[in-house]
């Protein structure tokens, strides 16, 4: 009986520890987003880098900061369970390319913007929602909220929200619609075709 109680106590303690380790704090998440913002600003405002180099650097930064595997799996929703191992590998590879390409192209050429962390609060049991104000040389400032989770490899962004619109939820809805009509293979092919588009050529 005593042995069993000790085991239970150890188990509960371990879970409590694991819970603490798995959750981030508003300070920790703010620092993560603040550091990321500084690195992004430094890259985007560097006069020594070409547009292609800036985009590649932003792509790398985003790749390190977003948990794209987790996001990719989430946005596929219930269809994930019906996909084969090979399809999952293909899908994740293309989803990452799709997201990174979209963001880096849009952000890479943009100079002069400043990011400020304005707020951070707990979101659910494991996450923190960090609010940033992005000021630009022209146009009104933009408020973006970043959902941050502490993963095995450190802090990761698992969603971005602007004007209450969640990137992940929006993408999930669009993917669901494609999967409904064409299946997962149709979605994979759609992603592959989308990333084949050419950008400016020398």
């Amino acid at each position: 009986m005593l042995k069993r109680s000790i085991t239970i106590a150890l188990f509960v303690g371990l879970m409590a520890w694991a819970g603490t380790a798995a959750a981030t704090t508003p300070d920790g998440a703010s620092k993560f987003i603040g550091d990321l913002s500084s690195r992004a600003s430094s890259t985007l405002n560097s006069s020594g880098l070409s547009l292609n180099q800036k985009e590649a650097a932003v792509r790398q930064l985003l790749s390190e900061s977003f948990d794209l595997k987790l996001i990719g799996r989430f946005v596929l929703g219930r269809a994930w369970k019906k996909t084969s191992k090979e399809q999952r590998v293909q899908y994740q590879e293309l989803f990452e390319q799709f997201v990174l390409r979209s963001y880096s192209r849009r952000l890479g050429g943009y100079t002069g913007q400043k990011f400020n962390v304005t707020n951070a609060k707990n979101f659910g049991k494991k996450d923190v929602l960090v609010t940033t104000k992005i000021s630009r040389p022209s146009g009104p400032p933009v408020e973006a909220r970043w959902r941050v989770r502490l993963r095995k490899k450190g802090h990761k962004i698992i969603d971005v929200m602007v004007a209450g619109v969640s990137m992940v939820q929006t993408q999930k809805s669009e993917f669901r619609s494609v999967v409904k009509r064409q299946g997962v293979s149709g979605l994979i092919e759609t992603l592959r075709l989308q990333v084949s588009k050419f950008s400016a050529q020398k």
Binding site: R136, V142, A144, V160, V162, V165, T170
Partner: peptide, 20 residues
Amino acid sequence: SNMRFSLRGWAFIAAVAAPA
């Protein structure tokens, strides 16, 4: 099929990268 597949909902991208 009426495939609609876009990044339109990614308001973040459009907002941050608003052209000037």
